[in-house]
Simulated scan of single mutants.
Amino acid sequence: MILTGCTTCRLPSKPPTLPADLAAPCPRVPGFDSESWDDLGLAYIGLTTQYAQCAARHDAVVGAWPK
């Protein structure tokens, strides 16, 4: 029997806990009930802002996850 003094195996570790802001689900798409083009433009701007924030959270989770 041969014993080695150094070993390269690692103990299993659990993944880090996600911060609450990164674990939050993306918001639901708000309903739109207007015939105004101005309201449509404002709703579009709001939706793109929500999407950008959600995409940034998703990218942060993907980047932080151990590879």
Rank of each mutant, 00 (worst) to 15 (best):
A55C: 07
G46A: 13
T7V: 12
A43N: 11
T4L: 04
P12R: 15
S36M: 07
R57G: 02
C6N: 03
L3T: 15
C54M: 10
D21H: 12
K67G: 07
Y44D: 05
W65Y: 12
S13D: 01
T17K: 11
L40C: 09
G63H: 07
T4Y: 09
T4Q: 09
D59A: 15
A64C: 01
I45S: 08
G31P: 03
T17L: 03
G31S: 13
C9D: 05
H58P: 00
A52F: 00
C9L: 13
S13T: 15
C6T: 13
A60S: 14
L40N: 03
I2N: 09
K14W: 03
D38M: 07
K14A: 13
A52G: 09
W37P: 04
P25H: 04
A56R: 11
G63M: 08
V61W: 04
A55K: 15
D39N: 15
V29N: 05
D33G: 10
C9A: 12
P16V: 14
S34C: 11
D21Q: 08
F32P: 01
Y51L: 15
G46P: 00
S34D: 14
A24E: 09
P66T: 07
T48N: 11
L3K: 10
A23Q: 05
G5S: 09
R57A: 14
L47S: 10
V61T: 12
I2R: 14
G63N: 12
P30N: 07
S36D: 14
L3C: 03
S34F: 06
W37E: 14
M1K: 10
W65F: 06
C26M: 02
D39W: 10
C6F: 07
T7W: 08
Y51N: 06
P19D: 05
Y51M: 11
A56W: 00
D59P: 00
V29D: 03
P12S: 12
P27W: 02
M1E: 08
L22Y: 03
T7R: 12
W65M: 13
T4G: 05
A20Y: 00
G63K: 12
A43D: 08
T4W: 05
G31F: 00
M1L: 08
C9E: 11
P19E: 08
Q50A: 15
T48Q: 13
E35P: 01
G5A: 11
W65I: 01
Y44V: 04
P15N: 03
I45H: 02
